[in-house]
Structures are given as C-alpha cells and as structure tokens.
Design a protein around this nucleic acid. Structure first.
Lengths: 150, 150
DNA sequence: CCTCTAAATGAAAATAATTATCATTATCAA
DNA sequence: TTGATAATGATAATTATTTTCATTTAGAGG
C-alpha cells in the first residue's frame, strides 16, 4: 500500500474529506502534466493506471478539488472545462492565459509576474475587505487574435 | 422599418457581416441588462420581443459577437456560458468578478480600476509583442469564499 | 428601385459534457 | 477490529451546444 497523502493532506483533513486512491491519483496526474486537461483527459489517464476508476468519480473529485482550492477550473470557450493544479510545491509555475478568439489557441505565459504580483496583492486585499470574501486564487486572461487568425 | 446599426456597425462592415433583425436584437438585449445572461436567457427575452427568432441563431450570434469583441463570453463554472457587452457607449461599466467556489455566487466589482489599468496596459503591450497577439480584451477573476460559505 | 447570390435563419435531430441515481465498497475514528 | 458513513462506479438522465439542410433575406451591383 502506498503512503497516504501529500502537501494537500491538511486541506483534506480540515474539510473532513477522506483520502482515497482515486483522489490521490487525480492529484498526481494533474501534478505531473503541463497540459490543460479536461475531465475526460484525466479519466483516460487515470484509467490507464487504475482501470477501476469511474468517470463520475473523476468529475466529483475535480469539483471537490476546485472547491478546496487545490485545483483551478478553467473554461476556454470550447465547451469543456479544463483543470490545473494550483501552486503545488515543485509543480507548475504560476501562469495565465492568452486566448485566440477565433481558433481558440491557448498560450500560457509566466512572464511579467512581478508587476502582476504587485497589482494583485493590492487589489485582492481591498476586495476581500470590501466584499467580505476570503480570496484564495485568481485568474487573468487576455483575449485577442493570434498571428494566423488576424 | 427600424434604423439599421449602432456603434457596432463598423465592426460588422469590417468583417462583411450583415446587419439583421436577430443580431440587432441580441445586442440590444445585452446592452440593456446588467445580468450575466446565458444563451438561453437571451433567447427567452428575444423570443418575447420577436417570436420568430430561433435558439440556434442566438447561439450563432453570440459566438460571432464574441469573436468580434463586441461581447465577452464568461464561464463561471456552472455549466453554461454567460455573455456580457464589452464597453458599449453608455452601457455597462468595465468590471470584473469575484466568484464563490462553493455557492457559485458572483460579485461584480468596478472599483480599483486605476491600479488595474496601469497593470493591464503595461502587461498587455509586452504580451502582444512577445507572442504576436492582437489583444482586444481581458478578464480578471478572483476566487474564494463568500461570507456564508466560509 | 429591381435582381440575384451568398449569407443568414430556424426547426429538428444529433452530439457531447456533466450530473443524478442507487446499490456496493472502503475509509478511518473510536 | 468494527461500524457508521463517506466515497465509488455503472448506468441512465439531463442539458448546453452544434450540425444539418431546406428556406428566407440582406444588400451589392446594375
């Protein structure tokens, strides 16, 4: 039997969520990819490793991880939601997206984060206070046209 | 017959898109609401005014307006896309969203735009250059938990 | 003001993502 | 180890969105 849990273990505990094989696997898969995976993508990969896993469980797990702030659900406009790990230690770098309105191409960018950090920190605090929100994450998207679609 | 067109007329011309009753109506509806309307919401409203309009046309029109940058397609994570007019003269104010991960409540905020403007202008230019994108719009979302869901 | 052609429309069918149901299984606190 | 209960997974159901295709219409050019 594998060692249970990881850096996210505490968050499970806080919420009274059980640590199960499917949940561990979904996190592991998202942690090891740099793709924008749909629920179905995750399911296929999960199924290769552990064929016992059901699609429904993948959906439920992704929803739960999203609520817990471990995963970010992103929708690029092509009809299926994508999921990305948020800030795992040693995982993907903090990034945002550039989206082509015509061909739906996605570019991840990780640059210019110093400026962003400064802006986010400032705004997040003010918003949290004004609207009584506990802010756990943010997303920034730029829309436009890539070279080919102009 | 109604007068054809509006502030968006030129953008139609540029693209060789025809100005039709359904298209005018969809724009008008989005312009007059401050809700986040789904395609179905728009259809229902449009249908009240002109029962000849079909749901398919509403979908097609929204898609087209999104590509033209007249409308922004937003997905909050509840399975249906929402649509908002972008910067119409005298229309809705530039704003962004605060989204509760548990109950999916949405707060529109229009504050702190000076800081944003500064950050966006800086970043947009650098991104456009580096990735050869023509950037026409952006979206910022903050995720977290509202008072009730904490 | 006509005419004609490509663009746009709408009804219905098809598709595909996501969610609900419910009997079975497995986690983990005691 | 055990038992209450959370989690699972197969299947069915739902629902947003897209495709198809025959019909209509906008608007450029005469």
């Amino acid at each position: 039997m594998r060692r249970r849990g990881g850096w996210w273990q505490d968050r499970f505990q806080d919420r009274g969520a059980r640590i199960t094989a499917p949940r561990e696997l979904v996190i592991e898969i998202l942690q090891e990819t740099s793709d924008h995976m749909s629920a179905s993508d995750v399911y296929i990969k999960a199924h290769e490793i552990n064929p016992g896993i059901g699609l429904t469980t993948v959906y439920r797990t992704l929803e739960m991880l999203t609520e817990m702030g471990i995963v970010q659900k992103i929708e690029f406009g092509d009809g299926k939601a994508r999921f990305e790990i948020v800030d795992s230690p040693g995982g993907k770098k903090h990034h945002h997206h550039l989206i082509c309105l015509r061909c739906k191409a996605i570019v991840d960018y990780t640059e210019f984060m110093e400026d962003e950090m400064e802006y986010i920190k400032k705004t997040e605090g003010k918003l949290a206070k004004k609207y009584d929100f506990e802010i756990t994450d943010h997303a920034i998207s730029f829309f436009g046209f890539c070279r080919k679609c102009r």
